[in-house]
């Protein structure tokens, strides 16, 4: 009897071991999803210290990444344009924009969009072309021959301004642009060194509070509900790690719910990551967070970039989104 019990136990253990080995072989050496190993999947991600990336900070601080089986390391970066080259090396997931993604792919990098972050919508605009109240500039046609301050020439906001100008019958080359960091734009506008600035919240809100006026949200000329910043990764990594991307999006969705239910606590986390003064943190509106992304969201940007001669190669937008 005892002998029978022992041999049954041994058989059971052998079967269990076989199942484990078979599962490990089936998973392959590169697959380490939470479901297969039950240990957190390490994800290295970058962020820019602006409110756009609040869901990731909330997901990290409130344990949503952990709850979805991710061990996420968040590293700060200075600007978006340098990030596409870092995926697959230093980071798995980084923030980006459609112009940066499209230009990176056009120059041969294997990068894809894996999740959205913010959409620009008519009922919650975050980006503005702002002029001084006494400037005499009321619309795109008044900007001909003027100097406009942009955070990045070739960046998503300036591309949208060029598209907005063209759509309104203004030759984009008739408006000169100069790069100025967002925080320095109010002084440049006040000193009349520039005639208009391309600004985002919370800087745009502060500019308007000081008597300047917004003449347009340039992003909305690209689409009424248009993709703004989003998350990208290396194409090869994304295709091999769909469960990880699914967990990433699920954690961000949880963070979004948390922000909606606990805005005050979310603002504390925002202050911790941005180091903005309390008054600015309180005055900063939350953008429209949405994490699902489609190829069409990228396609509208590809068309806009081509229209203003910012993309000279054909890029197949349908292959630029890898998401569960």
């Amino acid at each position: 009897m005892q002998h029978h019990d022992l041999s049954s136990k041994v058989r059971l253990r052998v079967k269990a071991a076989c199942i484990v080995v078979c599962a490990a072989v089936a998973a392959g050496p590169a697959q380490h999803s939470y479901a297969q190993t039950q240990s957190p999947v390490a994800v290295r991600a970058a962020y820019i210290p602006v409110v756009t990336w609040l869901p990731a900070w909330v997901a990290k601080e409130k344990g949503f990444f952990k709850a979805h089986g991710l061990d996420v390391t968040l590293s700060v970066a200075q600007n978006l344009s340098i990030l596409p080259g870092t995926v697959g090396k230093q980071f798995e997931i980084v923030p980006s924009t459609a112009p940066d993604l499209l230009k990176s792919v056009a120059s041969g990098l294997d990068v894809v969009a894996v999740a959205s972050e913010v959409f620009e919508t008519e009922d919650n605009p975050s980006t503005h072309v702002i002029v001084a109240k006494d400037s005499g500039i009321a619309g795109p046609k008044d900007l001909v021959g003027k100097l406009i301050a942009t955070p990045t020439i070739g960046g998503v906001i300036h591309v949208s301004v060029l598209y907005w100008l063209k759509k309104n019958g203004v030759d984009p080359t008739s408006v000169r642009a100069v790069e100025v960091p967002f925080p320095n734009m109010p002084d440049q506008l006040k000193a009349k060194r520039v005639d208009a600035v391309e600004s985002v919240e919370p800087f745009a809100g502060a500019l308007r509070a000081n008597g300047n006026v917004s003449i347009a949200d340039p992003l909305l000329s690209v689409g009424k509900d248009v993709l703004f910043p989003f998350w990208i990764s290396q194409g090869e990594w994304a295709r091999a790690n769909l469960p990880t991307i699914e967990a990433w999006i699920a954690a961000l969705e949880d963070a979004k719910s948390f922000i909606e239910k606990n805005p005050e606590e979310a603002r504390k986390i925002m202050a911790q990551y941005t180091k903005l003064p309390e008054a600015v943190v309180q005055a900063t509106p939350f953008p429209t967070y949405r994490f699902a992304i489609k190829a069409e969201d990228i396609q509208v940007w590809a068309a806009a970039l081509k229209d203003v001669d910012q993309l000279d190669k054909e890029v197949d937008s349908s292959k630029l989104v890898v998401t569960p």
């Binding site: 210290p49 602006v50 590293s75 700060v76 960091p181 967002f182 925080p183 180091k275 903005l276 003064p277």
Partner: peptide
């Protein structure tokens, strides 16, 4: 993003001239 150089950028972005 480290050291005194990043400190300059960080405080500029944090509206602390």
């Amino acid at each position: 993003p480290a050291g005194l150089g990043y400190g300059i950028v960080r405080e500029q972005q944090a509206l602390r001239p």
